[in-house]
């Protein structure tokens, strides 16, 4: 995964250049207001606008957050399941095995808290998907782990602007940076850059993420 070539903005550049670099900065960050709202509306399946009563608006905002939390929960299920299967596959040893165990425990904790949060908000947690991963060798496992973690970090980043509740946002941020730490550590273990996107991490949309994880989900 190669990020765009993000040129260092020249602080001495004329104002138009500076504005351009800010635009690029925001573009890289990805979430425009319009895209965020569209995602939220799609998640809610709700298109009634203005004149909404407080309770309707509240339900809509919460519905959006519940949908986002359930999407995150699906990814965390996938990650937790992945590490369980990695440990069972017995292809890692030493420090690498310890990392996999630790990261797996963390993903399981994320699963539990996301489930609890969906329930607290009055939603129904999605079911865990049935998964399948190619786990023949140490290299294959570590590469897949890095792919999944980098994707997870990009997925959380892609939702930041769409979350309505400050508290759900705070929780998502607390998970996002942990996914980023996992991704960076695995990249380094593989001898790759900790920051493949450069100075600004790129978000991924829900559609991009679900497409990327499709090969690992068994549909019956």
């Amino acid at each position: 995964m190669k990020g765009p070539n993000v040129a260092t903005p020249n602080p001495l550049a004329p104002p138009d250049r500076t504005r351009a670099s800010r635009r690029r900065f925001l573009q890289i960050a990805g979430v425009s207001g319009a895209a965020g709202s569209a995602m939220l509306l799609a998640a809610c399946g709700d298109d009634d606008e203005n004149a909404a009563s407080t309770s309707t608006t509240k339900a809509t905002a919460m519905g959006g957050d519940i949908a986002i939390l359930n999407y995150a929960l699906t990814l965390e299920y996938l990650e937790a399941d992945f590490y369980d299967k990695v440990i069972a596959a017995d292809v890692l040893s030493g420090a690498e095995l310890e990392l996999a165990k630790q990261f797996g425990d963390t993903e399981a904790a994320h699963v539990e808290t996301l489930k609890g949060t969906v329930e607290k908000l009055g939603g129904t947690p999605v079911k865990a998907p049935e998964t399948t991963f190619p786990l023949e060798s140490r290299d294959a496992v570590l590469e897949l782990a890095a792919t999944v973690e980098n994707l997870g970090a990009a997925a959380y980043l892609g939702q930041a602007g769409a979350i309505q509740s400050d508290e759900v946002l705070a929780a998502a941020l607390a998970i996002h940076s942990v996914e980023a730490r996992h991704a960076a550590a695995l990249n380094r273990v593989l001898g790759m850059s900790a920051t493949p996107d450069g100075a600004f991490a790129q978000p991924a949309t829900e559609a991009e993420v679900l497409k990327a994880v499709k090969p690992f989900i068994v549909t019956s």
Binding site: F25, L26, I28, A29, G30, V31, S32, G33, G36, A153, L157, A160, G161, D166, E167, L169, A170, L173, H176, S177, V178, A180, R181, H182, A183, A184, A185, N187, R188, A194, T195, D197, A199, F200, A201, Q202, P203
Partner: peptide, 27 residues
């Protein structure tokens, strides 16, 4: 600071930076 940011664009930008800080920290 994230939850106190009012603009969605600024929040998204801060998110793309914090992820890099986290990656640096881990490395």
């Amino acid at each position: 600071a994230g939850p106190a940011i009012k603009s969605k664009e600024v929040l998204a930008a801060a998110g793309s930076i914090v992820q890099i800080e986290a990656r640096h920290a881990a490395a």
